[in-house]
Computed example of a mutant assay.
Amino acid sequence: MLSGKRILLGVTGGIAAYKAAYLLREFQKAGCEVRVTMTPSATRFMGTETFASLSRHSVAVEVFNDTDPGDSWTRHIQWGEWADLFVIAPCTANTLAKLVHGQSDNMLTSTVLAARCPVLICPTMDGEMYESPAVSDNLKKASKLGFYVLEPDTGYLASGLEAKGRLPEADDILTEAARIIKKHRIQGPLTGKKILVTAGPTREFMDPVRFISNPSSGKMGVAMADAARALGGDVILVHGPLSAQIPERVQTESFVSADDLFELVQTHADADIVIMAAAVSDFKPSSPSDQKTKKTGRTESLDLVQTPDSLAWLGEHKNPDQILIGFAMETENLIEGARAKLDKKNLDWICANSISDDGSGFGSDTNTIHLIGRESMQTFSGSKKDIASEILSMIFESD
């Protein structure tokens, strides 16, 4: 559930701030991308450099940052839209009070107001503070406002007392984070389904500077990934070099060659639905050179061999309940060629489009696709984004 998710980790000024570094690593081990925002007082316990190094992102502390004046003051908006979950651990009594009263005097509290994702608060403080009427009242207000609150553990505190107020163990926080993300994920016909989508071209290198490829932008595959996510799917987008923007909250892995793609397809072959929209080179140089090939003035020949056929392999190893969707691009005999590919490669559906049609094919924002099944065919025209949504809705909402 956490793999590929985007976690915004908020760290406030308590002694347990050092534990947030371990929590960050545990989220990363679970497959999450993590960014960190800290209150100014938190930097007295842990330096921003530690979290920047671990997260591989700059740490946001102040809304206005003289050392990074660019877009830093709008980061609370950007990160609030970016995250799947905002985890504030530890959360001090002071920050808790600010959250329930809507104050925004630093980057962390400002980002909470801008967040479009659920917020998990882990209150952590001395036992007497935690049991105080003001904190108890603020915790109730936080729950009423829609914040998730994970109660602290009981144990030995920094004050030397045994009481309730310790930051919960990382495993407990991750378990609660997964539960919240699962509760808030998009509900649709693909909810709970793992969707593998491939997109973009492959590159088959002849030497270190030249390769065989095609003009694919990856726009159609990216649109299919975004449409699958909108229907509730847990999407993994495996892509080559793209000129299309990757949609938010989609897990990605990249490839260069057809061999790279084949390895990734085998890794994710357990997907419930596979959408093979990548434009794969059918051939590669048999003996690529380690050095740049020099021009000699005489005619050169290039010996080619076939690349692995990922789609055929998937068809041969297809699970009974798996849905396999392929793509076919032709310059002639489009429908006949697509039907033959549907049968030969054991597909459930194939999306056929012609590179010869205006407003269709490589690089275009629009397309015309013939969706061909075993006993049906339907044509869709328009933007690639709209077509992707219509195709998946027709296939899966009609089931």
Rank of each mutant, 00 (worst) to 15 (best):
S286G: 06
K164Y: 00
S132M: 12
K98M: 03
L342K: 06
I273E: 02
A17S: 15
K284T: 09
R249H: 15
E253G: 01
A163Y: 00
E330H: 04
Q28H: 06
I355V: 12
T331W: 06
M276V: 02
R203E: 15
V265D: 09
G146W: 03
S72H: 13
T74D: 08
R374W: 08
K384A: 04
T202N: 10
G326Q: 09
K164I: 04
S360L: 02
D260A: 06
D71M: 11
L302H: 07
D234R: 15
P215N: 12
V36C: 12
A114H: 02
A352M: 10
Q378W: 05
D226T: 02
E253Y: 06
I186W: 01
E336T: 15
S243W: 01
G80T: 11
R35M: 12
A42F: 00
T124G: 02
K345L: 03
Y148P: 02
R185N: 07
M1D: 12
L120N: 08
R35I: 13
M1N: 08
V135Y: 15
G70R: 10
T331L: 08
V197L: 10
V238Q: 11
E131C: 11
P285E: 05
V36I: 10
S58P: 08
L161W: 04
A83K: 11
E49Q: 09
T48P: 05
P247T: 02
K345M: 03
A244F: 00
T252S: 06
F27G: 00
G218A: 13
S143I: 14
K385A: 14
N106C: 08
T198N: 06
T198W: 03
D126R: 05
G233C: 08
T111L: 13
G47A: 08
Q378G: 05
S356N: 13
G127W: 04
E128P: 00
I173E: 04
K164W: 01
G13T: 10
N94Q: 13
M329R: 07
K183Y: 07
L2K: 14
D290E: 14
A244H: 00
E336I: 09
